[in-house]
Design a protein around this nucleic acid. Structure first.
Length: 323
DNA sequence: AACGTCCTCAACCGCTGTAGA
DNA sequence: ATCTACAGCGGTTGAGGACGT
């Protein structure tokens, strides 16, 4: 036996709410409080079903709703949480005060998801998806000489491009994200200058994410640490998140480097709970003056910067085919 | 100006989980 | 244990605005 409908559909209005309806609903709830949605429309003089009233209230009329554009911090948080929780929009919304699950879901589907796809990142698994990469933009990022790219070079590149190199690209971008302190554009330099880095840390209510200080004295080309996050639920079933990390050291040797990168990616895939490459922990924790409200261009730039990396000298022979 | 296409997001639909009778 | 009402969730839809030709 199927469920009986929550209300008699006949004669009930559907579609967009009018200001008058909003006023009726708001006034009623202010006086009586929310709840008892089944009887609310009748009592409030609305020709709507209770479900519609509840949705209108929770998604639009509630006084604590924060309207307007999502900040970059909020985007960061959404991406981080989505990488852990998946499409649990209500759980994500509960960590973003003033935002509704519906709003977050819409924003994900219309903005963030597309942006990740453009970056070659699978929005479901949050892993780099090589088949999704917009190679032209990647190549522009890498070489900064779009005019020098030609079809012949691209074809040769395609023939020679292999999984290892693309993983290198993907993981290098991840590293640049993680290791970048304030300016994303500086990230790649960290890897070629053998710097002693003190990566940032995140310590918030939901996350424990510590990056160790790394000494990279003997590294020829790259140095860095890949944090691999995993998630577990507590026996009590609450949603406290426990994030663990695996460190993957990267060193100069080609084979070792690609091997490390493969391991890093395998770890990610095995855990199926993934770090979000486009989000840096220090951003969440940062009190920097980084511009957090952004135009579309700034947001695109913010994300595309995350895929900027430099080809080490030892890979010059590969890079040469583009030029 | 007119038309077509794309994009956004409020609202709906169908389903599940839960509490109470 | 079963049934029912209700709240809530996630996926989907479609109206309307923005944009391009």
């Amino acid at each position: 036996m199927g469920r009986v409908p929550c209300c008699d559909k006949n004669g009930l209005k559907k579609g967009p709410w009018t200001p008058e309806e909003d006023l009726k609903l708001t006034n009623y709830i202010q006086f009586h409080g929310p709840g008892n949605w089944r009887s609310l429309p009748k009592n409030a003089g609305l020709k709507r079903c209770g479900k519609s009233c509840r949705l209108r209230w929770t998604n639009y009329l509630r006084p604590d709703i924060k309207r307007g554009r999502f900040s970059l911090e909020e985007e960061d948080i959404i991406i981080q949480l989505h990488s852990i929780l998946g499409n649990k929009w209500s759980a994500i919304a509960s960590r973003l005060p003033g935002r509704t699950d519906n709003e977050i879901k819409n924003y994900w589907n219309t903005h963030i998801r597309k942006r990740l796809l453009r970056m070659g990142i699978d929005p479901v698994t949050h892993t780099p998806r090589l088949d999704l990469l917009d190679m032209s933009s990647i190549l522009r990022s890498v070489f900064g000489k779009p005019s020098l790219l030609n079809m012949q070079g691209l074809l040769r590149a395609q023939a020679l491009m292999n999984q290892g190199l693309l993983k290198l690209a993907s993981t290098a971008s991840l590293l640049s994200t993680i290791n970048n302190d304030e300016n994303p554009n500086l990230a790649s330099h960290n890897y070629v200058q053998n710097q002693v880095t003190t990566p940032p840390s995140l310590d918030s209510a939901q996350f424990q994410f510590q990056m160790p200080t790394t000494q990279t004295n003997n590294v020829e080309v790259f140095s860095g640490t890949v944090a691999n996050l995993s998630c577990s639920s507590s026996p009590s079933g609450d949603e406290n998140l426990v994030l663990q990390q695996n460190q993957v050291g990267l060193s100069g040797n080609h084979d070792a480097l690609v091997h490390s990168l493969n391991n890093a990616n395998q770890n990610m895939e095995c855990d199926s709970v993934l770090p979000t490459p486009v989000s840096s922990p220090n951003r969440l924790n940062s009190s920097s003056n980084y511009v957090r409200s952004g135009t579309d261009e700034e947001r695109d730039s913010f994300f595309s910067d995350l895929f900027e990396f430099e080809i080490p000298e030892s890979l010059d022979d590969i890079a040469d085919i583009f030029l």
